[in-house]
Nucleic acid binder design. Structure first.
Lengths: 226, 226, 226, 226
DNA sequence: TATGAATGAGTATTCATTCAT
DNA sequence: GATGAATGAATACTCATTCAT
């Protein structure tokens, strides 16, 4: 469908085309090494169009961040809306959505945000906000998971956020592992990570000086974790 | 200690001075936004000296990565060498070392490597290698932890690496959380993270289609997951 | 009067609207810093219309120069046509017209022409011609003034032009002074300037080596101070 | 002396070379049309040197304004320092200095400042300050001229400034006339302008509603203008 | 050992101008 | 009559890197 090149297209369409290309280029090269020239050329248009629609290189990057964040959050909501009942299944669905998204849009989320740190205040702010939005989703899943099992507020907000950070960070890093193990499916990733964190999640107790029980409860009796 | 400035110093000393400054500047600004000019000025020498000693900007960055990685690995070894007995305590000591190191050298590890992704092949390689070194330390701790508890080889190398990635990723991300909670000590961070992952670590079973037990085994009966 | 915006208007009206806006924008920003975009937007039309009617940015600027020059010359003529009798009164009326015009259209004359210097040959030519037109008016007033008082041709064309340049230059510069003294009226400006130049005007003798008389004839005693 | 090109020169020298060229280019092309590329090339160096020494195009232009203003003010002082006795001779010397300077550095003063109007705030400020410095010189000359003849303070500060603006404006504009009459010497210009303004200068009376005496007082009687 | 002087190569950004509708 | 879409060409500015001393 790449007709004679450079058809006149309505603004919205062109804007999306540009952002599509920009996400790829920014991800491959990094913010600074990416040149607007290259983005424009790959998008099949001239540089002034990029500036007309996206204002600046920074604006373009922010648009990328924003759109990918929206997509990821949408994926989360889609997963949650599937009517899962138990908290565990909801968290599982969320993680599965994350790994699925990432395995298809690795550029869009992990890479983009790894770069965002070193950039302008505006970009850092946008990235932080996007991460907070995702983190909030995870925190919510985590909190309901904990509460439903242990009664309300056994773990405070701080604890839930700690867990959410840990899970999101683990998932982020596991995208690297996943890249080295192409056979692994998002479902497999999800299962493994769930296995690893679900049992221990609610052991995270903030201020209290809590020493863990004998690390592996003798598998037969298991009087609970106290 | 502010000598007359620019004393003639032996090469090694100068080199360390330069790297010290470079780590700070790279961390604050990012690789591209950092200018050799600034680094040279802060180091109190002229640009040609930087090039004489470190060859290029890339070489300088690699030197930074290498030195910080060495320091972190040393911290790990130092912790492990303290003669801990049980695997849990060894992993705990390692994590504590990590969080201690990071809380004092945040620039040196997390930030540097977050930037490394977008850079040249040489840098990416160095960064990957450094991460692998650290990951290997953690993997070793994880594997002994698992083995000692569950018998040898219950979890394969792949599983141990999965766990290591998850833990390192979680720890990385938790440095952000720690930055928002200045009151939290490395010990606190370690305890929380250990609580969270230690119990579940060995639930990570790669290929097997394993479905977790009822998420929270009714604390009294719990016939184990078998 | 805010019609539905962008009514279809006959060419002449649109053209005047555009020029009105352009004079303001060119004056505020200068030729280069003014953008056709801004002018079009302020005029409430699209850029292609500007090009359809005025050909180019240069053409637009020239149109501005031309119209403002016509207005100023018209003001001169209007003043002269009021049937003043003596040459002094005619010059006075001309200057008053100038200052009045300027105090209301400062943008239109002084500013536009100060910018014209740095621009294209075509613009410089148009500006020079406009200035010559005004200069001719003043020269004429000056010459009749001189002749009537001192007999014909005591001062040649050259001298009259000299005086005209001096007067127009003084008047131009005095617009700055006027801007700093908002209380001053065009009439006041005119009176002051006339007082200053009228007496000396005909002392301007070109080639002759003429030494002024004792500058101020000792009014009577004047022990002076030096 | 244009040796093998691009000798290593100390900063100060290079800086002056750059400014020399910049004055010419800015004057010929105007601020916006002048390109830093052209200036660098004509100065026989590369662009980065321009930026290293002068910071920015704006900074370069300001440096030009400043240096030319200093030169002109110096010319004024030189003229005044020649030990002229009477106020008239001092004003005459000042104007002669001005016309001499301009006939040799036309670019430096008149043209530069005509452009300055449309430029950035910083430039406008620098230009205004330079003009004020020159204006202050002229105002001082004017005031002593007036005072000496008519007793102290017959004309207030405002009046003296009015006269100074008029004279400087006239002189500015007369540079155009002078450009059209190459035979005219600075001395001739000075004589003509002095003849024209010296007699009338002190007729400038601000607030009073003063109607001029019979325009040309019969040169013999005229016991002063009352 | 140490540096001031110098630059080649590259990048973001802007603008006057035109085409297709 | 009127415009949204599109661009070629130019320009200010930066930076890693190297000489000459």
């Amino acid at each position: 469908m790449t007709e004679k090149r450079r058809r006149r297209l309505p603004r919205q369409v062109r804007e999306q085309q540009i952002i599509d290309v920009a996400v790829q280029v920014f991800s491959k090269r990094g913010y600074h090494a990416a040149s607007v020239d290259e983005i424009a050329e790959l998008a099949g248009i001239s540089k002034p169009m990029v500036y007309l629609y996206l204002e600046s290189k920074e604006g373009l990057f922010i648009a990328c961040l924003r759109r990918e964040a929206e997509r990821l959050v949408a994926a989360f909501h889609g997963a949650a809306a599937e009517g899962e009942l138990t908290p565990e299944l909801r968290l599982r669905a969320g993680l599965r959505a994350f790994f699925s998204f990432v395995s298809e849009h690795r550029d869009g989320w992990v890479v983009l945000h790894r770069h965002a740190a070193e950039l302008s205040a505006a970009i850092a702010a946008e990235s932080a906000q996007a991460r907070r939005a995702v983190m909030a989703e995870v925190t919510a899943l985590v909190r309901t998971g904990i509460e439903e099992n242990d009664g309300p507020a056994r773990l405070g907000d701080e604890d839930a956020e700690f867990v959410a950070h840990a899970i999101v960070g683990a998932a982020d890093a596991l995208t690297d592992w996943m890249a080295d193990h192409p056979a692994e499916s998002p479902e497999g990733m999800t299962r493994r990570l769930m296995n690893m964190v679900w049992v221990g999640m609610r052991n995270v107790l903030g201020g209290e000086t809590w020493t863990p029980p004998p690390p592996t409860p003798p598998p037969d009796t298991s009087p609970g974790k106290g």
